[in-house]
Computed example of a mutant assay.
Amino acid sequence: MTAPARLSPGDTAPDFTLPTDSGDPLALADLRGRTVLLYAYPAAMTPGCTKQACDFRDSLASLQAAGYEVVGISPDKPEKLARFRERDGITFPLVSDTDRAVLTAYGAYGEKQSYGRTVTGVIRSTFVIDADGRIERALYNVRATGHVAKLRRDLGLD
């Protein structure tokens, strides 16, 4: 497997309809008219992913006040996402991409470096999708810790 194709500003965001942690479907098209922060993470309830989700949770009110909707996406099953949401008080939708098709379409699944080895997995990424469904920013290989604070600064919110 080679490096996945990456999205760039101006690209149309790949549409999706995926089950959420509650089992209900969420479609990107349902969020048209709002700016979406879609963030891809490897696995619910792991230390880095928990830190990142809690950072988004803690910033959610100010992000929403600035017009942003947050959605997390991982290959975890909805049942695991529900436990994650409950355990950590996550207050935004978590969507399940068990076949990794959407993650792949966003360039957030493929070869990556992990502890000096090349492995295949979820590439921690964040996408800013504008109200018309276009990629405003595509950030790949982001760090779990400090990412939300950096994103807030880059978006002019701090």
Score class of each variant (00 low, 15 high):
Arg83His: 11
Val36Gly: 13
Leu151Gly: 02
Gly121Asp: 01
Asp76Ala: 07
Ser74Glu: 05
Lys77Tyr: 08
Gln113Val: 12
Gly146Phe: 03
Pro93Ile: 05
Arg134Cys: 09
Phe92Tyr: 15
Tyr41Trp: 01
Arg117Ile: 02
Ala5Trp: 00
Leu157Gln: 04
Thr126Met: 12
Val142Trp: 06
Leu151Phe: 04
Lys80Arg: 14
Arg134Asn: 14
Gly67Thr: 11
Arg137Lys: 15
Gly107Cys: 11
Gly67Val: 11
Pro93Ala: 14
Pro19Ile: 10
Tyr140Lys: 09
Met45Val: 09
Ala5Met: 10
Gly67Asp: 11
Glu69Ala: 14
Val119Gly: 06
Leu18Ser: 04
Pro19His: 09
Ser96Ile: 08
Thr120Gly: 00
Cys49His: 07
Asp158Pro: 09
Ala82Met: 04
Asp21Pro: 00
Ala40Leu: 01
Gln52Asn: 06
Phe56Gln: 06
Pro9Trp: 10
Val148His: 06
Arg100Phe: 02
Ser125Met: 09
Arg83Ser: 12
Tyr68Asn: 12
Pro75Glu: 08
Gly121Glu: 04
Ala27Gln: 04
Phe127Glu: 13
Ala108Phe: 05
Ala66Arg: 10
Ser114Phe: 14
Gly23Ala: 10
Thr104Pro: 01
Phe56Val: 03
His147Cys: 10
Arg152Thr: 05
Leu63Trp: 07
Ser22Ala: 14
Pro14Arg: 11
Thr12Val: 14
Arg32Lys: 13
Val102Thr: 15
Arg83Gly: 09
Tyr41Cys: 03
Tyr41Arg: 03
Asp154Tyr: 09
Ala27Glu: 02
Arg124Trp: 03
Arg83Asp: 13
Leu155Val: 08
Ala44Met: 07
Ala108Glu: 07
Thr20Met: 13
Thr91Ser: 14
Asp154Arg: 10
Asp132Pro: 03
Gln113Tyr: 00
Ser114Asn: 08
Ser59Ala: 15
Arg153Trp: 00
Ala149Lys: 12
Lys112Pro: 00
Arg34Lys: 15
Leu18Gly: 07
Ile123Met: 04
His147Ser: 11
Asp158Met: 05
Thr126Tyr: 02
Leu81Ile: 01
Thr145Tyr: 01
Ser22Cys: 00
Val128Thr: 12
Ile135Pro: 03
Tyr68Thr: 12
Thr98Lys: 06
Thr50Tyr: 08
Cys49Ile: 04
Ala101Ile: 00
Asp132Phe: 02
Gly67His: 10
Tyr41Asn: 05
Leu60Cys: 05
Ala144Phe: 05
Asp158Cys: 00
Ala3Trp: 01
Arg117Ala: 13
Tyr39Leu: 06
Ile90Tyr: 03
Gly23Tyr: 09
Arg117Val: 08
Ala40Phe: 10
Arg134Trp: 05
Gly72Asn: 08
Phe56Ala: 07
Ala3Phe: 07
Gly10Phe: 11
Asn141Trp: 01
Val142Ser: 05
Val128Tyr: 04
Ser74Phe: 05
Pro47Leu: 11
Thr98Arg: 12
Ile135Gly: 03
Thr104Ala: 15
Leu94Thr: 02
Thr104Asn: 07
Asp11Val: 05
Asp99Trp: 05
Pro19Asn: 09
